[in-house]
Amino acid sequence: MRESVDHLAMLRQQLAWIAGGERSVEVARFATGHKALDAALGGGLMRGRVHELFAAEADDSASSLGFAAMLAIQAALGGPILWLKTDEAERRGGGFHAPGLAELGGDPDALVLGLAPDAKALLKAAADAARCAGLGALIVECWGKCPVLDLTASRRLALAAEQSGMTLFLLRLEAEPGPSAADTRWAVSAAPSRVLEANAPGPPQFEIELLRRRAGPSGMRWRLEWDRDRLAFNEPALPGAVVPLPSHRPASADGLRLSA
């Protein structure tokens, strides 16, 4: 399996070379900050691609929305973010609350919200926005089955994003994965957070699964924790009382004795 993937990648490279130097083989990526995840993706998520995020269950919608917002903050690097949704999404998922974005480390002034009356108008607006290279990131929120978002529509979005170099996060909530031209596809679910003092919930944690990836293996799962101060994801500490080991010297006899 691994072999065929490499082979395919090589063939693609050759094709790109034949088609002309328009398409650069080296694509820009942005690192998520989670070491294992970045290593598996070859340095992070690709810019100028469509990334599909599915809510693992209906109740994970809010977590998926938050996860998309965090990825968009990372991808945009302070540039403008456009968030497109429908009227129905506003009703089901609630209205956007800008102080909440500031709490995640984003800049609400860089955000533009677009409300489409229906899914068709939403996709049309998304196709226009995907062509705009000035945007830092685009989030398209689709609720339900959304039959207008078929393979053709998603390929159109993918091509537009590839040409403009703008990263698109396609949020699919209460939906089943279908054929699409997305670069990666993820299932996002909420995970219990780290306990702070007095049993308070800590920073948001997620359990994500790579459902599909165009150029590479899939099926892995990771646990991520958002660190607002670094604007990056962390590998969460294991639950329970854990004694931190000093990073600049090997685990000493003291450390061993403590853990014993």
């Binding site: 809010a62 929305l65 938050g66 917002a69 998922g93 609630g94 209205g95 956007f96 609350h97 800008a98 102080p99 909440g100 974005l101 500031a102 709490e103 995640l104 480390g105 609400p108 002034d109 957070s193 702070l196 308070a200 919930p201 800590g202 920073p203 948001p204 607002r228 101060d229």
Partner: peptide
């Protein structure tokens, strides 16, 4: 916009009903 305190988890939600 209110500036969050470093080290604290998010105190305000991203979506409001």
């Amino acid at each position: 916009w209110p500036v969050p305190e470093p080290g604290e988890p998010p105190m305000r939600p991203l979506h409001l009903f």
